[in-house]
Design a binder for these strands. Structure first.
Lengths: 247, 247
DNA sequence: TGTACATCAGTGAACGCGCGTTCACTGATGTAC
DNA sequence: TGTACATCAGTGAACGCGCGTTCACTGATGTAC
């Protein structure tokens, strides 16, 4: 009987304790995220998070082993937040042409970045000084690329015009240069399409970074609405160039 | 006679003193730049610079009014270093097609960035926390854009194929969105070319940032030579798409 | 040429700050019989 | 149900660090007559 009680109670008690523990760990990450979102990575410190939670700074160490670990959690969180946002926008779109899907992904990425510039800067800005991202962050970082790869796989049409012809003897070298990415994309997708998608991909983050980091000031209009429209136009131009279908 | 002496001596003495002063100010900036290049913006502090120069930290304040002013100097310095490097590469190229000039500019920008990643991060990465760039930094930041604009002005050919047609009633809005940039480029350059050049421009910095900030790890090959060749290929693709002539 | 004075560079101590992290501790909560 | 013990969360003081900036000071260098 006592065994049964123990079996029933122990897990639930442990589960409860673990639950409280998890809840507070979450709370810490949420609070840290808020500080990040509001004041940027510069203001983010173990002590500041503790202060904001009304705890002693040392208490944080019951939940997070170090400052770097906290940053890691925030990075994973940021990648996942962006991933969630973009994936759900993509899902909500429903059946659509590959071109429309590309644009949706681009728009959603930009919207997330404009909404949370500090979190965007954390993952796509200059690396945090003195911090080396551990392997844990790799997987969540691949969510968007995987989405794009799925999109490429669905694009089964031939490319409209192959751009400047790649010299035949160099093609193998470029294939090699595209290495890991090429291996991730189904063989049915031609190299040229992989290359163009990669370029479109970097273009997307180039635009967003320029806009967020102030490099478009005095270059394009400051009006948010005009900027959004211009961004959409750019997305269309890129997806047309890549050769994504727009039916 | 004494007046003559005073007139002769005073300016030269003042000039000497001022010269020594300027030399040390330069030395401070150079040292700060070295620290930036070697250890990144995180390690950059007034005290660290003083230490490296063997001076008391308070001595720095005879030359530079504050830490922010020092950062400003470094930002101006970085833009100018990049500007010098790219401009001289462009000049050394001599007479060449607009397409080749574009590629040269791209290559030179990338080479400078790979050579001095921390300085690149200072100007094109996430903004330094708690620092607002003053107007002084605007002018040197426009050196590369101005070079590109000159290139566009030289490109007098019509665009090969206009991409997806821009709906007529929206053209004016896009012109408005391109606002300041449109005004800087000669009227002989069509809107579409301005748009494409802007996109190629952001693409360039997108690639470089991705490469420098580690977002191409596990995506493309790690081999520097292959990366360089892939970059060149990308430059060619972009300049062909923009419609730059390659004669 | 010599002397009194002004200007300036550079020093070192100090202020006040916030940081990451450790550690011995106090209670509260859960566990075992 | 009651009691002895173990586990754990959270505290607050402390360590050692580096930072930006100020300030009264000491000499050296230049200036004026």
């Amino acid at each position: 009987v006592s065994e049964t009680n123990a079996e029933l109670a122990a897990p639930s008690a442990r589960g409860l304790r673990q639950g409280v523990r998890d809840a507070l760990t979450r709370q810490i990450v949420v609070t840290a995220n808020e500080m990040l979102a509001q004041h940027g990575a510069g203001q983010l410190s173990v002590r500041a998070v503790a202060r904001s939670l009304g705890m002693a700074s040392s208490a944080i160490y019951r939940y997070v082993p170090s400052r770097d670990a906290l940053i890691t959690l925030l990075i994973v969180e940021a990648y996942n937040s962006l991933g969630d946002h973009v994936e759900s926008s993509h899902t909500e779109l429903g059946p659509a042409s590959v071109g429309e899907r590309w644009r949706t992904i681009g728009r959603a990425t930009r919207a997330w970045a404009l909404d949370q510039p500090h979190r965007y800067a954390l993952i796509y800005g200059s690396p945090v000084p003195g911090y080396a991202a551990p392997e844990i962050t790799i997987e969540p970082a691949t969510r968007l690329p995987r989405l794009m790869i799925g999109l490429l796989a669905d694009q089964a049409v031939e490319l409209p015009e192959p751009g400047r012809a790649v010299p035949g003897e160099l093609a193998e070298r470029f294939r090699l240069a595209l290495g890991p990415l090429r291996a991730m994309v189904p063989a049915s997708v031609p190299d040229e399409l992989v290359l163009r998608a990669l370029m479109g991909w970097t273009q997307l983050f180039g635009v967003i970074s320029f806009e967020l980091f102030g490099h478009l000031r005095n270059v394009i209009s400051d009006d948010p609405e005009l900027r959004r429209e211009l961004f959409d136009l750019e997305m269309d131009r890129v997806s047309a160039w890549i050769g994504l279908s727009h039916d």
